[in-house]
Design a protein around this nucleic acid. Structure first.
Lengths: 141, 141
DNA sequence: CTAATCCCTCTAGTCGCTAGAGCATCAAGA
DNA sequence: TCTTGATGCTCTAGCGACTAGAGGGATTAG
């Protein structure tokens, strides 16, 4: 119940330098220190860090996570905002999936058409050089 | 056939600062300058830049693009390397799509379960706090 | 001639970490 | 008690691929 940063790292699955970085950007509060200036943590910090890790793994940005964390300290408030953050994140993910699938189609077509001969006949190189060949309108993943 | 950077930008669809950045990192050669130190370009540079833009839009990294560009200057060589770059890029995209789809499933489930009540009952917050609720093993997009 | 638009270089910021230098501290065995 | 190795600390810089802005010079249309 009063452990150093390495132990917190093991419990949370977040690397030590990353924990210090999270403290620096205000995602984790500054913990108490020992006389020799070492950080000491307890279970609440570990829980918070696990929350942060899951949120990051699900692709939430740091600002979103700050908002989600702020909510957990007001348990009686409406969870409308959490819902809205999650929904807008979901639509962003949908957008990215669609975009990647378009790229995949384009790339697959290029690779299939490649005759494995010389550069000057290569459909991959040609497709990259001339957008007229493109089937889809890939304009930013 | 001897135009300034703004015109190159229009022809290629790449922003002016980005063109200068590409020159800096060696993706574009240093062009000749006018007496008053302004860059002047021709059609080959525009073609090269369009090639770069398409490659970036398809998600190729700068190092890959350098390799692809180097190939275009050896038209008699085998296109095996181009094929291999494209294939490994494709498998990376497959990986990212799979990962994003796992996240999407997780998020969708979280949002569906949210009862739109108070924070303390919110399934979104709860799911983020406790990984035991997770269906899939989402470990890095 | 003037005003708007273009062009130049240089620095610093974005995001979410990661790596490394250079040092202090701690725990465990000989 | 000494030593060794792991762990802790701070600080700075780097990643990738740009983007933004400051502070100036050049060009061009009216």
């Amino acid at each position: 119940m009063n452990f150093p940063i390495g132990e917190l790292s093991k419990r949370s699955g977040v690397k030590v330098p990353t924990i210090r970085f999270y403290e620096q950007i205000g995602l984790l509060p500054e913990p108490p220190r020992t006389e020799s200036n070492q950080r000491r943590y307890g279970k609440p910090e570990a829980d918070r860090l696990i929350f942060i890790r899951h949120s990051r793994e699900l692709g939430f940005e740091v600002e979103d996570i700050k908002a989600l964390l702020a909510m957990t300290s007001e348990p009686q408030a409406s969870c409308h905002q959490a819902d809205s953050i999650a929904r807008s994140h979901l639509s962003e993910i949908d957008r990215r999936i669609a975009s990647l699938q378009a790229l995949k189609g384009e790339l697959t077509r290029m690779i299939e058409e490649c005759g494995h001969g010389r550069i000057c006949d290569c459909r991959i190189i040609e497709a990259l050089a001339d957008h007229g060949h493109c089937a889809s309108d890939h304009s930013r993943a």
